[in-house]
Design a protein around this nucleic acid. Structure first.
Length: 447
DNA sequence: TCTGGGGTCCTAGGACCC
DNA sequence: TCTGGGGTCCTAGGACCC
């Protein structure tokens, strides 16, 4: 049976989240910055029109921001994560087969509905807008890659009303022709330049290339993209609960860190966070990698970047053990006399807890139970009272590494103290209602 | 002065094993 | 002069995605 894939993509997601609660942001240029207010990672259409590039360093755009009155925000992941959950819950209530692809995207299967895929997609679009307050675009096609291409047109060209179906579309060739190779999902800058040298400039040109040639030049992943564009599905919807194969936790520092002790504290925080994610997916890891970098933009400073991996004696999710191992690695790779800008940890060799491979060094059951109870208690307390309520002492007690987040909006939906106020009335200063519709303020279940 | 964080998959080469 | 065949695992790097 031919499958019908739909890709639902939230428009300028982070900006849209800010706009739900602040109507003054409508029709004005808005951007959201990465951690430490470093780079531009989301732009409203008005900001895009000003020529602000994705990933542009914020300090280089400062003048432009001021000149055009661009509203600038630090990233507010509490808000975006919660809004994403609302959108996804909404989609999940409308279709049975769905795969969340990223914080702002999900693939759906649109087979077996009484309405036409396009009509149904328009209904999905309206529902998400009403329930979550977030505008989305929906592309439809016989493969995921074609659905992606359709989505691009649905988003860019308002005349489609936010939905485009490329399945059996008589104008498919024309749409492919209007899709530059670098805009094809799976073809990035390098391959796009390479294709250009062969005068392959758009998806239609690419779709006409020989399979053997594409495979030899772009490996099997390139071949997969070719077949998908030709309408032959290579990518399935997949299970939504496939565990990650690696878990990374890392940060750039607001300033620079030179001392081993400070790096150890930072690393303990990252390990602790990664181990939490590991336990969350009920898994254990067998490998741990630590990396540190100096600031690669400071050519005038001595540079050092190093990563080293260690295979653990037995699989684990026990934070103290992971911190100990991370510190051992750090001591081996650390070089005094350098100002480090970033550090991180990666856990890999991940196996489900229930399928644990015992080794000669696996601790006896009684100790494992003790460790499990300790971690469960810590996770429970932190989930009830907030992250970091209970933490390993190795993380330090004083917050020294401060992240730059000077332009943060309130956590409208996840903090009691920061809820939007409709009208202050009898108890003080007025905060104007923020939501586009009252539904946007309600948890999805209530709408 | 200031340049994010978290993932996936593929390939090649070296060390090592029998 | 001639020097096998078939594996695994690890590391490093590249390319891509959001």
């Amino acid at each position: 049976m031919t499958r019908i894939f739909a890709l639902v993509d939230c428009n300028n997601f982070y900006v849209s989240c800010e706009r739900v609660f602040d109507p003054k942001l409508k029709d004005v240029p808005v951007v959201v910055l990465s951690n430490n207010d470093g780079c531009v990672i989301a732009r409203s259409n008005e900001a895009k029109a000003l020529g602000i590039r994705m990933g542009a360093p914020a300090f280089k755009c400062k003048d432009l921001f001021e000149r055009h009155g661009v509203r600038v925000f630090s990233s507010n992941y509490s808000l975006y994560g919660d809004m994403s959950a609302r959108v996804m819950n909404c989609l999940g209530s409308l279709v049975p087969d769905m795969k969340i692809y990223s914080i702002d995207e999900a693939f759906l299967l649109l087979n077996n509905f009484s309405e036409s895929p396009e009509t149904f997609a328009r209904r999905i679009r309206q529902t998400v807008l009403r329930w979550a307050g977030i505008p989305v675009s929906i592309g439809i096609g016989p493969t995921k890659t074609l659905a992606k291409i359709a989505n691009r047109f649905a988003k860019k060209h308002p005349e489609h009303g936010g939905v485009l179906d490329l399945t059996n579309n008589p104008d498919k060739a024309s749409y492919l022709k209007q899709t530059p190779t670098e805009d094809i999902w799976g073809i990035g800058g390098k391959h796009s330049l390479f294709l250009r040298s062969y005068n392959i400039r758009n998806a239609l040109d690419f779709s006409r290339q020989a399979r053997d040639w594409v495979k030899s030049k772009m490996t099997v992943t390139g071949l997969q993209t070719l077949l998908e564009i030709q309408g032959i599905p290579c990518l399935s919807l997949e299970d939504s609960f496939v565990p990650n194969k690696t878990i990374i936790s890392s940060r750039s520092f607001g300033g620079c860190v030179g001392s081993l002790d400070q790096l150890k504290e930072a690393l303990a925080c990252y390990v602790s966070r990664a181990a939490e994610k590991l336990r969350w997916q009920r898994a254990l890891c067998t490998c741990i990698m630590v990396f540190i970098h100096t600031n690669r933009f400071r050519k005038d400073h001595p540079q050092h970047s190093c990563a080293r991996q260690l295979r653990l004696l037995h699989s684990t999710d026990y934070t103290p053990l992971l911190i100990r191992n991370a510190h051992d690695i750090l001591e081996k790779i650390y070089r005094p006399g350098h100002e480090y800008k970033k550090a991180g940890v990666m856990l890999s060799g991940i196996e489900p807890r229930l399928e644990r491979q015992l080794t000669f060094f696996t601790p006896p059951k009684i100790r494992r139970i003790k460790e499990r109870k300790l971690m469960e208690a810590m996770d429970r307390i932190n989930s009830r009272w907030g992250r970091g309520t209970l933490k390993p002492a190795a993380m330090g007690t004083v917050k020294k590494r401060k992240m730059q987040r000077n332009l943060l909006s309130p956590r409208y939906t996840t903090s009691w103290h920061e809820l939007p106020v409709v009208r202050a009335g009898w108890h003080g200063q007025a905060r104007i209602p923020a939501a586009r519709s009252i539904d946007a303020l309600m948890p999805v279940e209530m709408s």
